[in-house]
Simulated assay, not measured.
Amino acid sequence: MKKQRPTILVTNDDGITAPGIKVLMEVMAELGDVVVVAPDAPQSAMGHAVTIAKPLRLDKVNIYDGIDMYQSSGTPVDCVKLAVNKVLHKKPDLLVSGINHGYNSSINVIYSGTMSAAMEGAIEGIPSIGFSLGDFRQDADFEPVRNYVKQVAEQVLEHGLPVGSLLNVNFPPIEEIKGMKICRQAVAKWKEEFDERIDPHGRKYFWLTGKFLLNDNGEDTDEFALSQGYASIVPVHFDFTAYNAIPFLNNLSFNSK
C-alpha cells in the first residue's frame, strides 16, 4: 500500500506574499501536501495575540500554482486556529512557521508572531517548528538554509517532538552555514528608547526603537551559535511555570491573617 503523504500547514507573520514563506512552502512541498494559511499583511511582533473585537476574514487565493493557499485578516495565531477549524477540519501532521525575516533568537521569541503561530500549533498537539533568518531585507537570500529546513522538518515528521514542546530554529545570514547546534535560549533583553516627534497638528507621538542587550556569555546559547556561523535549534515549551520558584514561594506566608 502506498504511504500517504503527510499534511503540512505553513504559516508566518510577514504576510502571505513574503519571500520567506515562498521558500518554506517550496521545501515542504518536497515532504508532503502543503496548505498555507497566513496573514494578508505583515503581523510582526504580534506575539500570541488573537482577534476578538472584530470579525476575521479568510479568503482562498491563487498566488503560486499547485499550492492550496488562504489569507486571513487576523494574526498568525488566528491563522493557525482558522486553518485547523475551518480549512483542514483536522490537525495537520506538521506545522511550520516562517521563514521569518529577522532573528527570533533569545528573548525575541516572546514577541514573535512567527513563534507564537508555532506555539499555537504545539498547544493543539501538532508537531511545530518556527524558522527564522537573521536578515530583514526583502531580497534576503534563503538558498543557504533550504537543506537545513528540510532536514529539521524530516526529523520532526519521522520522530515527532516531546509533548508540549516546539522548535525555534534560527539561521545566520551567511552563504556557508557550518551546521546546526542544539542550544538554550540566551539571556538578553531590549532596552527600549522612544523617538519623540511632533505631527503636523502639533501633537506628540513616539516611534519605538531600542538596543539589544546580551547578558549571557555562555557558549551553549543560540546567540553564541549564530555568532559562530551555526544554525541554532532551541526546544521551547508553552508551560510558563517557574518550577524552581515553587519551593521559595512555599516558604512564604501567603495564608497568614
Rank of each mutant, 00 (worst) to 15 (best):
I8V: 10
L9C: 06
I16M: 09
T17M: 12
V23P: 00
M25F: 15
E26K: 13
M28G: 07
L31M: 09
G32W: 05
V34P: 03
V35S: 05
A38R: 04
D40V: 04
A41Y: 11
Q43L: 05
S44G: 11
S44A: 13
T51K: 08
T51A: 12
A53I: 15
P55L: 13
L58N: 10
V61H: 10
I63M: 14
D65H: 15
I67P: 07
I67K: 10
Q71S: 14
S72Q: 06
S73D: 06
P76D: 04
V77R: 02
D78P: 02
V80G: 02
L82M: 14
A83S: 10
V84N: 02
N85Y: 07
K86V: 02
K90Q: 14
P92D: 07
D93G: 09
V96I: 10
I99L: 08
N100R: 07
S105P: 00
S105M: 06
N108H: 09
Y111W: 03
M115V: 01
A117T: 01
M119W: 01
G121Q: 02
E124D: 04
G125F: 07
I126L: 04
P127M: 04
S128E: 02
I129V: 15
F131S: 01
S132H: 03
L133N: 03
R137A: 08
A140H: 03
F142G: 01
F142C: 01
V145C: 02
V145H: 00
R146G: 00
Y148G: 00
Y148I: 13
Y148L: 06
V149M: 01
V149D: 00
Q151L: 06
Q155D: 08
E158H: 07
E158V: 05
H159G: 00
L167Q: 01
L167C: 04
L167K: 03
V169Y: 02
P172F: 09
P172G: 10
I174L: 12
E176Y: 14
I177V: 12
K178Q: 07
A188Q: 08
K189M: 12
K191I: 13
P200N: 15
P200M: 11
H201P: 00
H201L: 11
H201K: 09
G202F: 07
G202N: 06
F206R: 13
W207R: 11
W207V: 13
L208T: 09
L208A: 08
K211P: 00
L213N: 12
L214K: 13
G218M: 07
G218H: 03
E219V: 12
D220L: 13
D220F: 13
D220Y: 11
T221K: 04
E223Y: 12
A225Q: 01
L226I: 12
Q228L: 02
G229M: 03
V234K: 00
V236L: 10
H237I: 05
H237Y: 08
F240R: 06
F240K: 08
F240M: 12
T241A: 08
A242H: 14
A242E: 09
A245S: 14
I246F: 08
N250K: 14
S253P: 04
N255H: 05
K257H: 07
